[in-house]
Structures are given as structure tokens and as C-alpha cells.
Design a protein around this nucleic acid. Structure first.
Lengths: 341, 341
DNA sequence: GGCCGGTGCTAAATCGATTTAGCAACACGC
DNA sequence: GCGTGTTGCTAAATCGATTTAGCACCGGCC
């Protein structure tokens, strides 16, 4: 494609009108007294010339750019991070906006740079996202700019989008209880005693609270709780190998605090000759890509990353949305939980 | 933070000079004859007021926005997609640029919209990325705009960044050969006969060519080749279950065409009571997240997603880069290949 | 005939930068 | 004392849109 871009002035000239008239007509301004004929001529000329407004120029005048800054500590390492982006992208597209994506690695220096980079480009709003949910430092932002925290909170900016972890935690226990499990349940990843006073993350705390409340309501107690600091497959494998030795067949169900731990548990159970869900049921959290690949498929409470990303964009664009926006965590039932009588 | 942004005019006023002078000084323009004193005053005033140029305004005048459009068919579903973005983000940041990320789901309609959306915002260049490497349709783009294809090619735009799949394919075979494997090698995922005339993807074709050339050079032949159209764990599992039955202990090594197939193969081997790498060695491609979680760790030829993303940004910013830019695929050695004598 | 109000449109200012063109003051050479 | 350069700086144009303020014309009414 060659030549320069068509400008509003070109359209106006072609229509035999001023660019004032062309601007008003193309923006559908109400209460202008421009004739029907003028409307027709401008719209026709614009179509004919393939006119598209230069948003840089418009932005300069209107201070609106139809662009949202999406600043994240991490974008690639987890499916969660990219899910947030995808959801945000979807709703931004639907609203005719576009996303400026920046990564900070969680370093305050880069966070500050990122904020400046997006403000220099006059974004309409900023979304701050984190992997590990937490109270997030937000560099100073001018008053008018709308800020939404995604999977994070901040005192000065009260608009946060979070997964409804409390309800998710309850759902995991409800699922096991409805399948008839009442005994021999193991909590893999957290021990109330050992981790007392340690801060893991805001949302994980709620997840665990949901689990414990649902247990208590049903007068259920865990057979064992195993604290694991890093929720990686290797650690899940090691912990489960030990626990199988200790508890043997008393072990009937596992609540794993994420899918990677569950994956490690599968490996340990297979080595010990125990089958899932025949001998042991497992329910977990996150719905990692992994969960679908495992055999049998892992039943898990999904982290609703895309829905969260979508909610964040909606919140940026709707000035009335405020406070904590909780996004439900869907229960993804596969084949790792057996019914017992 | 309150109040309006500081403008160049504010800085100039404070320094007691014209904004022309302030602009020239802050941009480090050569050959202006402005005094050292004027320099000091402007720089001092800018620092004092915390001046940051409005890039929208600058962009309007200079037609440069320090912004690159990153248009991808998919951003979230695979680690590959998000790796490309992360790499691009890294080098964009290093070069003081920022990325406008858009997703198209591979639909021409959305591709066209995406191009218009980024051009309307006067980006300095556009990167088109795909998951499945292919000749990509690129909507018309004005002459001056630099276009780079990432994991794709296009006739009109000769700048492409691709993984060096041919060398990667060779590397897989070299690895097995050096470990002493000469017989009982299975190619999992492709059968030359069955797939004749079918087009999978440009890069996969090169991968397979590298594999076959390296085999031929060493006068090696596959024990069997198994065509699998969709490279998912379930299909790898099914195919391997069948192949183990058919070939038994003759099977000594597997070249899996991606890690998800290898994962399925692991499951089938474990069920058949065969150990990796004791009974069967496996080498694979991609270096999915999965590969590190598997037991034993999977040796695989990595898809260099981040390096590719970085290379794409470099190519956009350097007008001299042209043609195919091949990014090496690193060999990631874990524990799935045994030495045999 | 003059005033009023409505209709249909446009000139010019504006956003915040960059860039072009050129002015005033001074030194120098002859 | 007069042209010629150099030095140090600025006024104004420009990019492409939006928006403010207001002009010219017409018809109707007294």
C-alpha cells in the first residue's frame, strides 16, 4: 500500500465542506444543524477515501487514546499470567480498546519505569497484575487515571479483581463430601501449625480458610496436613512418598493445594502401586494445562484467569465499578475423585 | 499525585528560554549554538519540574511513537506464544520501546482490524506472530511501516524470524547416536509414507528433514515410524501402547516430535513396565513446561521462544536486518537418554 | 424597514511537541 | 564606516484531529 494516510482535511475537501463539519458528522455529534445532504457527502467521501482517524492526533486533543496499560510482574512463565492477558485482550477488543503490555519482574524500579512509559503515551487507564497475589506497590499516578489491581490489592486504589478463593476452597471440600469421603483426607501443601504467622499470599489464605470452614461445618478433620513451601511436582512427590509410607491404606483422599503438587502425588501413588481414584481420590486447585494431561484427568478448582482479565478491563472502563470484584472459580470435574459409600 | 502534567513550555518558562531552545537542548540536538548556560538552565528546570515529554504530541509531529504492534493469532494457550511475547517485551524495553499486543485467533477479519488498530496509533513497526508456523496472510500495510514475521513467512514481507528446525532435527539424532543408539529407534509423530503430500507446517517439515538427513548420514534407519496427526498426550499414549505390543523389547529409543507426545509415551511405557531410560531412551522437541516435571526429566530440543521474540524486535528496529533469521534450538539434556555400548 | 431567531456552516484556537526560517548583536577585515 | 560572518537565540509553522465562537443568510413579525 502506498501514499500517505487520508486525513480529515482530505475528506472535508472531497465533500466540499470544512473539516469542522466533517469532524462533527463522523463523530455523530448531536445537535449540529448540518444538513442531511452534508452528512451524506461526508460519510460517502470518508468511505470512498478509506479514511481512518489518526488516533495520535485525536489523543492529543481529547486526552483519550482508547489504550489501556497492562503492567504485570510476569507475563510468560505461567498459564495464569498469559490467561489474564488473554482475557484482558478479549474485552479490550470488544470495547474498541487496545492493550499496552509491559513486564516488570516485580522490581520497583521497572514498575516505576513502566508506569511512566504508559502515562507518557496517555493511556486511559492502567491495570496492575501480579502472579502471586499480594498487596502491590503502585508508583504514583496522576489523579485522573483509572487504576485497577488484578490479582492484587492496594490501599490507595480500591478497585481489585480477585478469584473467589474462599468459595473455591469450600467447593473442593463439598465435592469430596458429596462423593462420600469423610475420613482419611490429607491436606497437601499446608499445615496450620507449621505455617502459623507465615504469610503466603492473600488469596491462598482465603482458599485455606474456605477449606477449613467447609471441613468444620461437616465436622470433618484431616488425617494429616503436610506443609510444603514450594508447590512444585518434585516436592509433592517427595512429600507423598513419605506420607504413603506413614499412613498406608488409611489414606483415602487428597486435597492438593495446586495441580503441580497433585502431579507429584500421582507419581508417588503410581510408584506405590496405588491407583487414582480407585484407592485414593484427589482434588486440587488451578486447572493447569497439566491437569488435562494427567491420567486419570485431574478434578480441580480452576483459577479463572481469563475471566479475571476480562473483569479487569471492564473495571477500568466503567468508573462506577469499585471495591473487590470476586470472580468465581469453576469446578472442573474430571476423573480423579471416586464415589465411596 | 495531582495537578496537570508539566509541559515543555513550563520548562522553557522556568529556564527563561523559548520552548524551541528547551526542545533542542533536551533532545541533545547537535550543532545548535545554545550556550552552556542555557543547557544547564533547561536541564535543571526539567529535572526540578519532573518533566516528561508527551509522546502523543511528539508522535504527531515526528511520526515515531516508540511503540511496536505485536499481532498474534494466539497469546495464551501455549507457553510458546507467551514466550514469544516475553522475549519481545524484553528487547522492546531494552530499546525504550513498548508493545501494543493484539490477538486475532487467526481470523482474517480480526487480523485486518488489528492492523488498522495499530496503524491508527502510528506504531513504528508491526510484528506478526503465529503459533503454527506458516505462510501468513498480512493485511495491506503502508509502505513505510516495517513488518516482521515471527514464526511465519510472507511473500511481500521478507523479514522472518524462525527457529532453526533443520539443525534442531539433526541435533536430536546426533544426541542419540552419540549415546550409542544405532537400532530400535522409533519416530513418533510422523510417517513419511502416510503423510506424503500433507502439509503440516513449514518448520516441522524442516525438523523432519534434519532428522532424516542426520539418520541417513549415519546409515541409520528407523525401526518404525508412526504418524500421529494431533500431537497430544492422549494420542501419544495410544500410539505407544500399540507400538510396545507390536515391537516389544526391540524398541530401544524414541524420537518424539514434541514433548506432549513424549509425555503420552512415558505413560504407556510405565504401564507396560518399561523404564526410561533404562529400557527405552527418549528424545523430544519443544521443552514444554511439562518436560521438567516428568520423571525422569525429558531430554528435548528446545523451541527458543524468548530468543525468537527478542530477535523479532531487533529486526523491527534495525532496518538492515532482512531475510530469514534463524534462531538456534538449544539441546536441553535431562535424564531420558541412556548411553548404550 | 428593522429586529429577532433559527439554520447551516466555517475560521481559528487548541492540544504539546518538533522544526524551519530568520532576527539581533557583535566581531572582524579592510 | 561598511559589508560579512558568527553567535545565540526565538517566532511561527506544523502534525491531525476536536472544539469554541461566531458569521451570513433567510423568514417572519410588528
Amino acid at each position: 500500500m502506498a501514499g500517505k494516510r487520508v486525513t480529515l482535511a482530505d475528506v472535508a475537501r472531497r465533500a466540499g465542506l470544512s473539516s469542522t463539519a466533517a469532524s462533527m458528522i463522523l463523530n455523530g455529534r448531536p445537535d449540529t444543524r448540518l444538513s442531511q445532504d452534508a452528512h451524506d457527502r461526508v460519510i460517502h467521501a470518508a468511505a470512498e477515501l478509506g479514511y481512518r482517524p489518526n488516533l495520535t492526533a485525536r489523543g492529543l486533543r481529547t486526552e483519550r487514546t482508547d489504550t489501556i496499560g497492562f503492567i504485570s510482574d510476569v507475563v510468560a512463565t505461567t498459564r495464569f499470567a498469559s490467561g489474564l492477558i488473554k482475557g484482558a485482550l478479549d474485552n479490550a477488543h470488544a470495547a474498541g480498546h487496545v492493550l499496552l503490555v509491559l513486564e516488570t519482574a516485580g522490581e520497583p524500579q521497572r514498575e516505576a519505569e513502566a508506569v511512566e512509559a504508559v502515562l507518557d503515551r496517555q493511556v486511559d487507564g492502567v491495570i496492575f497484575a501480579t502472579m502471586r497475589s499480594r498487596e502491590l506497590y503502585v508508583p504514583p499516578v496522576p489523579d485522573g487515571t483509572r487504576v485497577v489491581l488484578l490479582n492484587a490489592t492496594n490501599e490507595q486504589h480500591p478497585v481489585s479483581v480477585l478469584p473467589d478463593e474462599y468459595a473455591g476452597g469450600r467447593a473442593a471440600i463439598e465435592l469430596l463430601a458429596e462423593a462420600g469421603h469423610r475420613e482419611g483426607i490429607l491436606l497437601l501443601g499446608h499445615d496450620a501449625e507449621k505455617e502459623r504467622g507465615l504469610f503466603r499470599s492473600m488469596t491462598v489464605a482465603r482458599r485455606i480458610a474456605g477449606i477449613r470452614d467447609a471441613m468444620a461445618e461437616r465436622s470433618l478433620a484431616f488425617l494429616a496436613e503436610e506443609s510444603i513451601w514450594l508447590w512444585e511436582p518434585q516436592n509433592g512427590y517427595a512429600a507423598m512418598t513419605k506420607l504413603i509410607k506413614r499412613h498406608g491404606r488409611a489414606l483415602q483422599a487428597i486435597v492438593a493445594l495446586n495441580d503441580r503438587l497433585a502431579f507429584g502425588a500421582y507419581q508417588a501413588l503410581a510408584e506405590a502401586g496405588l491407583s487414582v481414584p480407585g484407592d485414593v481420590s484427589i482434588v486440587s486447585f488451578d486447572n493447569d494445562e497439566l491437569a488435562a494431561y494427567m491420567r486419570p484427568g485431574l478434578t480441580t478448582i480452576a483459577l479463572p484467569h481469563e475471566a479475571m482479565g476480562r473483569a479487569a478491563v471492564d473495571a477500568v472502563l466503567d468508573p462506577d465499578r469499585t471495591g473487590e470484584i470476586l470472580v468465581p472459580m469453576p469446578v472442573v470435574e474430571r476423573d480423579s475423585v471416586a464415589h465411596v459409600s
